[in-house]
Lab assay of single mutants.
Amino acid sequence: MEVRTIKVFTTVDNINLHTQVVDMSMTYGQQFGPTYLDGADVTKIKPHNSHEGKTFYVLPNDDTLRVEAFEYYHTTDPSFLGRYMSALNHTKKWKYPQVNGLTSIKWADNNCYLATALLTLQQIELKFNPPALQDAYYRARAGEAANFCALILAYCNKTVGELGDVRETMSYLFQHANLDSCKRVLNVVCKTCGQQQTTLKGVEAVMYMGTLSYEQFKKGVQIPCTCGKQATKYLVQQESPFVMMSAPPAQYELKHGTFTCASEYTGNYQCGHYKHITSKETLYCIDGALLTKSSEYKGPITDVFYKENSYTTTIK
Rank of each mutant, 00 (worst) to 15 (best):
C112N: 04
L291V: 15
Q196C: 11
L65I: 06
L179T: 03
K92C: 08
I6L: 15
K95E: 15
Y265A: 00
P249A: 02
F242R: 01
A262I: 00
N111F: 03
T55P: 08
T120P: 04
A69T: 08
E52R: 12
Y96S: 04
Q216A: 12
M207E: 05
L235T: 03
L65G: 08
L37G: 07
T211N: 09
E68Q: 09
M85W: 11
A132R: 05
E296Y: 14
D135V: 08
I6A: 09
A154E: 03
D63W: 06
N14R: 10
N268D: 15
P249Y: 00
T314M: 14
A205I: 00
L114F: 05
V189H: 12
L17R: 11
E308D: 08
F174G: 03
A250I: 09
Y73A: 04
Y113I: 01
H74C: 07
N110R: 05
K255M: 11
E68G: 07
Y96C: 03
D38P: 06
H18Q: 07
E264T: 07
Y284L: 14
Q196R: 14
V243P: 00
P300N: 14
M245W: 01
Q237W: 08
T35Y: 05
K54E: 14
C261A: 05
S295M: 12
E2G: 10
T312Y: 11
V21W: 11
V206Y: 01
Q195Y: 10
Y214A: 01
L173N: 01
T75A: 10
K201N: 11
F305M: 03
A145N: 03
P34W: 08
E162Q: 11
F217G: 03
T169I: 10
L291D: 07
L88K: 06
K201D: 07
F148T: 05
A205F: 00
F9V: 08
L114E: 03
N187C: 14
T5L: 12
A87L: 07
E71G: 06
Y84E: 01
N16V: 07
V203L: 09
K46R: 13
N178M: 07
A115T: 12
Y234S: 07
T226P: 13
E204Y: 10
Q175Y: 08
H256L: 14
D135M: 09
L254D: 01
R4T: 12
Y36R: 05
T260P: 01
T159L: 09
V42L: 12
S50N: 14
N187H: 11
T226L: 10
L254A: 01
T75K: 09
L283T: 07
A177F: 01
K46D: 12
S295I: 10
T282H: 12
K233T: 11
I223T: 13
G39T: 14
S294N: 10
L153S: 03
N100M: 09
H256V: 14
M85H: 09
I105E: 02
F242K: 00
G29W: 09
A150F: 02
T312H: 11
T103K: 02
L212I: 08
G82S: 15
T76S: 13
Y311I: 11
H273W: 01
E52W: 11
A108P: 03
T91P: 04
K46I: 12
T314Q: 15
Y208F: 12
K191N: 13
I301D: 01
D77V: 04
Y306D: 00
D135L: 08
A262H: 00
V21N: 12
K280T: 09
I301W: 00
E2M: 11
V206S: 02
Y214L: 13
E2H: 09
Q195M: 15
S240L: 00
K280C: 12
H18Y: 08
T226I: 12
E296I: 11
N16C: 07
Q20V: 14
T282E: 13
V166C: 07
A150E: 01
D63S: 09
V3H: 15
T76W: 11
Q122D: 04
L37H: 13
C149T: 10
R141D: 04
Y72G: 06
K158C: 01
N129C: 08
R4V: 13
Y269Q: 15
E215N: 08
G210P: 04
A132T: 04
Y214V: 10
A117I: 06
K219T: 12
K298C: 13
Q195C: 12
L163T: 15
L17T: 08
T302H: 00
T292W: 07
N110W: 03
A150T: 03
P78I: 08
G101D: 07
E296R: 10
N49C: 14
V67C: 15
F217C: 06
A145E: 04
P78K: 11
V206M: 03
Y297A: 00
K106F: 06
Q134Y: 05
A150P: 02
T5H: 11
Q30H: 13
A231K: 05
K219E: 09
P60F: 06
I15H: 15
K280W: 08
C149P: 03
Q123E: 10
E281H: 05
R4Q: 15
L81Y: 08
T159C: 14
V206K: 00
E71R: 10
F305G: 00
L133W: 02
I223N: 04
N129E: 11
M245L: 09
G194C: 04
Y155T: 00
D77N: 08
A87I: 07
